[in-house]
C-alpha cells in the first residue's frame, strides 16, 4: 500500500492531503495541480489580499457595473442561489456587519442597524449577459469566508477525478473534509465528530464515500476548559450573534453545499425549505446541556 501525504497553506488555513495507492511522483504532480488551482482561486476570492478580484469588486461595484472573471461571477451567483435557498440565512454580502455584540465591541447597535439596511447579498445584482456585478447598497461587501473553502475543495475534487484518483482524503483546516473512495482498510472513510468539552468523546461517526463533511462551530474550548465564543457566527437577518456552544455538520457529495449549509444550519436549523432534496445528505447538530454533556440532534 503506497500512501502519500502532502500539505500546504491555502485560503488562510492548512490543507492536508492523504493519497492512497499513488507513487511519490504522482502525488507531487497532484499537489502541484491542486496548489496551482487554489492559488488562482485565492487571487480571485481572498478578502485578505487587497489586490484580489473580490477585494477590488468590493471597492468598485457600488452603483457601477463591474465586469468580473467567470470564477468570481460563478461564486457570486452561488451566493445568491444559497441566499434564496436558506431564506436569507446564508448572506455573504454582510462582511461589514459584526453581529449584535460586535466582534470586538466596536460596532454600536445603531451602526449595525444602518449596516443592516445598506448591506447584504440581496442588494447585489448580477448580469448574465456581460458577466457583470453591481452593488445597490453602499455597505455591501462580499465575504468569501463562508463559501471559499467549499469552492476550493470542489476544485480539488475535480483535479482528483481528472487524474483518476480513486481513494484520497483531503482536509481543509479539519473543518471541511473531502473523502474520495474509501479508507485502505475499510469500505468507507470514518470521520468522527467529537464533543468539544470531552476529550476524545465521539458524538457521531460519519461514514463517507465520495462525500464531503463540513463542521461549523460557534467557538472553542480554551486550555482551562472554558467555552470561548468566536463571535463570528451571526444571523444576518437580525444581526444577533450565536454564542451558545454548538457545532453543526453537513454531509453532501458537493463540498460547496456542505460548507455553506453547515454554517446556515448553525444559525437556523429550520432554514431549509421542505422541498429541499435530502437524498445522499446528512446533517446533525451537537449541542450541550447545562452540564456540558453533548446531545446529537439530527437535522435532515
Amino acid at each position: 500500500m503506497n500512501t502519500q501525504y502532502r500539505n500546504f497553506f491555502s485560503m488562510g488555513t492548512r490543507l492536508d492531503a492523504v493519497f492512497i495507492n499513488v507513487n511519490e511522483k504522482h502525488a507531487d504532480n497532484l499537489i502541484y495541480r491542486i496548489k496551482n488551482d487554489l492559488n488562482k482561486l485565492e487571487n480571485v476570492l481572498s478578502i485578505y489580499k487587497t489586490d484580489s478580484e473580490l477585494s477590488m469588486l468590493n471597492r468598485t461595484a457600488y452603483k457601477k457595473d463591474t465586469a468580473v472573471s467567470p470564477d468570481l461571477y460563478e461564486a457570486v451567483r452561488l451566493c445568491l442561489d444559497y441566499y434564496k435557498l436558506t431564506n436569507g440565512v446564508f448572506d455573504a454580502g454582510r462582511a461589514k456587519l459584526t453581529g449584535s455584540s460586535g466582534r470586538d465591541g466596536r460596532n454600536t447597535q445603531r451602526d449595525n442597524s444602518t449596516l443592516m439596511e445598506s448591506s447584504g447579498i440581496g442588494l447585489v445584482e448580477i448580469n448574465e449577459k456581460d458577466k457583470s456585478i453591481r452593488y445597490h447598497g453602499k455597505n455591501v461587501k462580499i465575504d468569501s469566508g463562508g463559501f471559499g473553502k467549499g469552492l476550493a475543495m470542489k476544485k480539488v475534487k475535480n483535479v482528483l477525478i481528472s487524474e483518476g484518483l480513486g481513494n484520497a482524503l483531503i482536509s481543509f483546516g479539519e473543518s471541511l473534509i473531502l473523502a474520495m473512495g474509501k479508507h485502505p482498510h475499510g469500505n468507507y472513510w470514518p470521520v468522527a465528530v467529537e464533543g468539544i468539552f470531552q476529550k476524545q468523546s465521539v458524538a457521531r461517526v460519519a461514514s463517507l464515500v465520495d462525500q464531503s463533511i463540513s463542521t461549523s462551530g460557534t467557538g472553542f474550548v480554551d486550555v482551562s476548559g472554558v467555552f470561548r465564543p468566536s463571535f463570528n457566527i451571526f444571523d444576518p437577518r437580525t444581526g444577533n450573534t450565536i454564542n451558545d456552544p454548538m457545532t453543526v455538520s453537513f454531509i453532501s457529495d458537493d463540498p460547496i453545499e456542505a460548507e455553506i449549509l453547515s454554517t446556515s444550519l448553525l444559525i437556523d436549523r429550520g432554514c431549509l425549505p421542505e422541498v429541499f432534496d435530502t437524498s445522499g445528505k446528512e446533517a446533525f447538530a451537537v449541542i450541550y446541556d447545562n452540564d456540558m454533556n453533548f446531545i446529537v440532534r439530527e437535522i435532515l
Partner: peptide, 26 residues
Amino acid sequence: LLNNIEHEIFDPLPLGGKSWIPETAV
C-alpha cells in the same frame, strides 16, 4: 489517520474535538 493506515487500523479520523478551532487561520 496516517499512523492508523500504516498499522492497518480502521479507526475514525477525529474532528471537531476539544482542541479544534473552527475557521481559524494558521
